[in-house]
């Protein structure tokens, strides 16, 4: 077989090109530590997802400057949304799907993975400066695929917390009885936080300074005299940093029923709070209507 000299030259050049490409990629992997999404994680049941990571998709702190974000993708939303992490942090995303194949892709970055039901994608990412990133699903996942989006907020260190607020109070009290508003504050960071729990009800504002150790939960109970508020509906709001929880208490002349009803009311109130808790907790900056919408989207998607 005779090959022309020029063609031999080109053959060598082509081989150099190919080897050069492979060398560049290898340099990226070995020299720069760029890692592919791989098979590090075990498989999961997409329809159940009841392990501690995905039953409550959230951000968790695992070390100094180290966080883990558990994310689920479903038609046609991401959970949690938005995902909030601090600047100068190393975040490992664990992403899985509840239904079909999606993707989890931070726009304008190299953070990009397929999300396959049954598999968990693991990606470790280093965030430096505070910035907001859009998240898209870039794999067709159904008729509303183009509406599937989310956000990752990288926030300044001093604006970041992993505080969970859950406040409870009775729905109805008799004039003259005390209203107990209990604020349960969980600090999911590893370090202790010092903060103030504030209750606003009627024209009254009461607050209490608390210190909560890392991973601990603090309960603060405010007692308000219903007689002072007077009959009627009174909205109350509990605030911790930028997290709020609010509901309405009705002061009536006389309760229709006995204590049993009191408990039931308490329970219904609790349910509402629990609802906020699932996704309201991670995103203090977002108001409640927004997060509720996200959640109803998600459950709507599940039904389909």
């Amino acid at each position: 077989m005779n090959i022309h000299t020029y063609e031999k030259l080109w053959l060598i050049a082509a081989m150099v090109l190919i080897v050069g490409f492979i060398a560049t990629i290898t340099y990226g992997s070995v020299g720069l530590g760029i890692t592919m999404v791989g098979d590090q994680q075990d498989t999961v049941e997409p329809t159940e997802l009841d392990d501690e990571r995905f039953s409550d998709p959230r951000v968790a702190q695992v070390g100094e400057n180290e966080y883990e974000a558990y994310v689920t993708a479903q038609m046609f939303s991401f959970q949690p949304d938005p995902i909030e992490v601090p600047e100068d942090s190393e975040v490992t995303f664990y992403v899985t799907s509840r239904d079909v194949i999606h993707s989890f892709s931070l726009v304008g970055t190299n953070v990009n993975t397929m999300v396959i039901p049954g598999e968990v994608a693991e990606m470790t990412v280093e965030f430096d400066e505070p910035q907001d990133y859009g998240v898209v699903c870039n794999e067709y996942c159904g008729p509303n695929h183009h509406n599937m989006e989310g956000m990752v907020h990288v926030v300044p260190e001093d604006e970041f917390d992993l505080t969970e607020l859950d406040a409870e109070a009775p729905d109805e009290v008799e004039t003259g009885d005390d209203i107990d508003v209990t604020a349960t504050v969980e600090n999911r960071l590893l370090d202790p936080i010092e903060t103030t729990v504030t209750l606003e009800i009627g024209n009254e504002t009461v607050s209490e300074d608390v210190t909560i150790d890392g991973g601990e939960t603090d309960e603060t109970t405010f007692t308000v005299d219903s007689a002072q508020l007077g009959e009627g509906d009174h909205e109350w709001t509990v605030t911790v940093d930028e997290h709020t929880d609010s509901w309405t208490v009705t002061v009536v002349d006389e309760l229709e029923d006995g204590d049993a009803d009191d408990d039931a009311d308490d329970e219904s109130n609790e349910n509402t709070d629990a609802g906020d808790d699932t996704d309201g907790g991670e995103n203090g900056t977002e108001d409640e209507t927004d997060t509720d919408e996200t959640e109803s989207d998600a459950s709507g998607g599940d039904d389909e």
């Binding site: 990226g28 720069l32 530590g33 760029i34 890692t35 592919m36 999404v37 400057n65 180290e66 190393e90 490992t92 931070l106 304008g108 970055t109 190299n110 953070v111 993975t113 990606m123 470790t124 990412v125 280093e126 965030f127 430096d128």
Partner: peptide, 17 residues
């Protein structure tokens, strides 16, 4: 490489951090 951030392995970044 200018399109930061990029997916990296945890240990290397830990060293870098």
């Amino acid at each position: 490489l200018g399109n930061d951030p990029t997916v990296v392995s945890g240990t290397l970044v830990f060293l870098a951090t």
